[in-house]
Design a protein around this nucleic acid. Structure first.
Lengths: 121, 121
DNA sequence: GAGGATGAATTACACATGTAATCGACAGGG
DNA sequence: CCCTGTCGATTACATGTGTAATTCATCCTC
């Protein structure tokens, strides 16, 4: 699957949240803190189309954009890539790292334990 | 902290494994499948120096390179970044994702549970 | 029907990255 | 002492990315 750059990912998030949308709609929904102009968003949309991760259908003079890939699939791929690169593919190594950095709250721990318990059943 | 590109990261891995090293040593230790020339490795080293994530000391006419940042720190930052972007900062969401994708072996699960149990004590 | 708003497409440009080649200095072998 | 190999430094160049401006067509409003 094509890589999606960080900025482009923000556009994908918008469309995973709600689709189809026009370019203007997407621009309106992109997080404020990006500070993007409509032109910038349109560039992103073109590039995402070129990468094949978006599709568009004509709606009069405009396009309606929608994702061509599923969020879960992309997220799974990226997570896997990071775990492979940084943790030798070992998920426990990632969890150990998070633990060592105090990234796990008591609630997180409880939730993960519950998840794992259900997994085993 | 400065971002480290994927290729550059491979060079950092070498130096985290063993340091200090000369440029030639690093090149010799970079994974084969990269297929990099010595020149390429030297470019990487320069860029990593410029980013401040490596230091070098003179050794006669050569340099000896060594990491200026700790692997754990960098890995922690990158993991955090991914978890923030893709899972809204929620580690359990990441674990759930991995579970749903069958990325967790029984051994992984057992190991993680052990880890979490120790954490609580 | 003319002019402004709005769409997508095209072009722009700087910085990052992958992937080197080349250059000038110098050290060591003959 | 000169040649050759080796060093780091400089330069190169294509592609990706962030961030638009410009262009050209078209629709809507007055």
């Amino acid at each position: 699957m094509e890589r999606i750059a960080e900025g482009e990912y923000a556009v994908m998030e918008v469309l995973w949240e709600e689709a189809p949308l026009t370019a203007a709609d997407v621009a309106a929904r992109v997080p404020e803190n990006r500070g993007w102009s409509l032109a910038t968003v349109k560039t992103m949309l073109s590039r995402l189309l070129a990468k094949g991760v978006l599709t568009h259908e004509e709606d009069g003079r405009r396009y309606l954009y929608r994702p061509a890939i599923r969020r879960e699939d992309y997220v799974a791929e990226e997570s896997g890539r990071l775990i492979d690169r940084m943790f030798g593919g070992r998920v426990p190594a990632l969890v150990a790292q998070l633990a060592a950095r105090d990234k796990l709250t008591a609630a997180d721990i409880a939730e993960i334990e519950k998840l794992l318990k259900e997994l085993k059943s």
